[in-house]
């Protein structure tokens, strides 16, 4: 008994460790089997093997060109929206008037389909990066404004009383209390925004671009190269996932205290 217990425990540990990976591999194998034995043609659902072949058939340097084009726009749009959203949230938190004037405007911007105004943006800013960055920014900044504002408003009221009782200047109340308290909220906003940034960059590439993963997918589809389009799509999802993870890493690295406590 005494000897089997640690072994069982060890087995359980290993299962927990490898289960997600094994599940994923199993899923891919199942997909492959359905495609091969079900004789599903490539243009309906390409088999994983033909997606991998399509991926390898595109030169590595081309992948990097497209990746860099999308990543560049997504990150510039993402950082631009941080630069806009956080000061805006601070302003809206501090001024009731600003809040009442801007909030409806923000909701209008958010609920306007960007694709509908994209041609206008292209006419105003041209067909280069600035247009695409703006389109990305329009998609990403709203969740950030909402999460930052919510976070700052959820500061414990007694902390604000402490600040008032010290007669500290208001900017220190904002910087030393409200913003740090909003960090967990800001980061959940950032996690949403970074994945939206990729979607934004891809949407922008659908409107006007000569390179980028979104352009590549659209292009592959126009030539009915479905496996190649899927390869682009999967590459894109992997990038999204990595960016999402990076936001978590940055939070772990800079603000470890802001993570939820493990039970």
């Amino acid at each position: 008994m005494n000897q089997t217990y640690p072994f069982k425990f060890w087995c359980k540990q290993q299962v927990n460790r490898f289960a997600p990976g094994l599940f994923f591999i199993g899923l891919v194998l199942l997909w492959e089997c359905i495609c091969v034995f079900g004789k599903v043609p490539n243009y309906i659902l390409p088999a994983p093997s033909s997606i991998i072949t399509a991926f390898l058939n595109v030169e590595f340097s081309r992948w990097m060109t497209h990746l860099w084009a999308t990543l560049r726009v997504a990150l510039m749009g993402f950082f631009l929206s941080i630069i806009i959203a956080i000061p805006l949230s601070i302003g809206m938190m501090r001024s009731e008037l600003m809040n009442r004037v801007l909030y409806p405007a923000l909701i209008v911007i958010q609920s306007t389909p960007v694709v509908a105004v994209a041609p206008l943006i292209i006419v105003l800013l041209g067909t280069d990066d600035p247009s695409r960055v703006l389109i990305t920014c329009l998609i990403t900044f709203f969740p950030l404004v909402v999460s930052t504002t919510t976070g700052m408003l959820e500061t414990p009221p007694e902390m604000i009383e402490l600040s008032k009782s010290l007669r500290a200047p208001r900017y220190r109340e904002t910087w030393q209390i409200r913003i740090p308290y909003a960090i967990p909220h800001i980061f959940s906003g950032l996690r949403v925004s970074i994945t939206l940034a990729i979607i934004g960059a891809v949407v922008a590439e659908f409107v006007a671009a000569e390179e980028g993963l979104g352009y590549f997918i659209q292009f592959s589809t126009s030539f009915f190269k479905i496996p190649q389009a899927f390869a682009g799509l999967i590459f894109l999802s992997i990038i999204s996932l990595l960016l999402f993870k990076s936001v978590q890493w940055v939070q772990m690295w800079l603000f470890p205290w802001s993570l939820p406590k493990k039970k």
């Binding site: 041609p119 292209i122 006419v123 041209g126 067909t127 659908f206 409107v207 006007a208 671009a209 000569e210 352009y215």
Partner: peptide, 19 residues
């Protein structure tokens, strides 16, 4: 230099606006 388009109307707009 070549700019790709997204349909006839898109192409017309880009020419009309000097893009």
């Amino acid at each position: 230099s070549i700019a790709s388009g997204r349909g006839s109307t898109d192409a017309l707009t880009k020419m009309a606006t000097g893009q």
